[in-house]
Design a binder for these strands. Structure first.
Length: 309
DNA sequence: TTTATGCCCTGTGCGC
DNA sequence: TGCGCACAGGGCATAA
């Protein structure tokens, strides 16, 4: 289940392998993986073919590869990707003819040429919520780099409404603290709102709320300013820790570009631990479906409303 | 404008 | 053994 730390692990793995490579051929093996393009696989192939990959960039859970076509001074478009629930990238070096047969879940295969060396880039996606897209780059409103790994102040159009992510050095912290305290929604819903801060998914929302001792259903308007700041810091802490361990894995759904799993799952304090004792106070971790997502919290450590006094 | 809901999709695990 | 069902969940469209 790729969230920010998992997608960053993928980005960091891909960047040294495919930056500078030219896309020589595209094989879309399942049309729905390029569903955002009205022209489907043919349009995707036409837009991506013979383009040079300038970088591997990430904002939140979105990845993109700025593309430069021959004769153009700088990239005007990007190959963007979202891993959804189960997306993976796998890179194979060596002749295209000798590449392993596509995995049953392989939705797209790109043949790359990096300084004369052939590479195969496979996009795998079991649950098919992920997608690939080619679209124009648009300037960032703040004029700053678009995301992790970016050298340009631009993002793909479909990412322009997504907020900077929790680990982005350009994140406007005071603005986030204000936004997280606005409205009547439960604070977990607010954390999952990608337009405010991106990259937070169901797992890390539960973990950050546990760490900051905030009940997931506390109305955003009942969150104090210090709590909002603590929540942002808790979000960063759990993500940095997960990142250092290669992300979270429960099964084979999330792996890095080499097909290896991360190890953070064994360190989760709340998510997936319903019925188990809280590692902080010993009370039972509760689990309920809130807003259509399974939610885990400690009823003793995480009060719905802050204690008065 | 804000918030809630349902859909997309497929593999897994469970009960019968 | 085989079938049917619930479940997992990110993002988006739509409704209220």
């Amino acid at each position: 289940m790729p969230e920010l730390p998992e997608v960053e692990t993928v980005r960091a793995g891909l960047a040294p392998l495919i930056t500078g490579a030219v896309i020589r051929a595209v094989d879309i093996r399942r049309d729905s993986c390029v569903r955002l393009l009205p022209g489907g696989p043919a349009q995707f192939s036409a837009m991506a073919a013979d383009a040079r990959i300038g970088a591997v960039v990430r904002r939140g859970k979105f990845l993109w590869l700025p593309l430069t076509h021959a004769g153009a001074p700088e990239p005007a478009e990007a190959l963007s990707a979202h891993l959804g629930m189960s997306g993976q990238f796998r890179v194979h070096a060596g002749p295209w003819e000798g590449a392993p047969a596509p995995h049953p879940h392989c939705r797209a295969r790109l043949l790359l040429d990096r300084d004369g060396s052939p590479l195969t880039l496979d996009f795998l996606d079991q649950r098919t919520f992920g997608y690939l897209h080619v679209e124009p780059l648009v300037p960032t409103p703040d004029g700053l780099a678009g995301g992790q790994g970016a050298t340009l102040a631009s993002v793909p159009g479909s990412v322009s409404h997504i907020g900077r992510d929790a680990l982005d050095p350009h994140l406007d912290e005071p603005a986030v603290a204000r936004a997280w305290r606005r409205g009547s929604r439960g604070v977990k819903q607010v954390l999952l709102d990608q337009t405010l801060v991106s990259g937070i998914g169901n797992i890390y929302a539960d973990e950050a709320l546990w760490l900051a001792r905030v009940h997931p259903e506390r109305p955003a308007s009942a969150v104090t300013a210090p709590q909002a700041r603590a929540l942002l810091e808790a979000t960063r802490a759990v993500m940095r820790r997960a990142l250092s361990q290669g992300g979270t894995s429960f099964d084979a759904l999330y792996v890095n570009v080499n097909g290896e799993s991360g190890y953070f799952a064994r360190d989760l304090e709340a998510y997936g631990r319903g019925g188990e004792p809280c590692g902080r106070c010993g009370a039972v971790i509760r689990r309920e479906t809130i807003g259509g997502r399974s939610t885990h919290w400690c009823a003793r450590c995480q009060r719905r409303y802050a204690a008065r006094g």
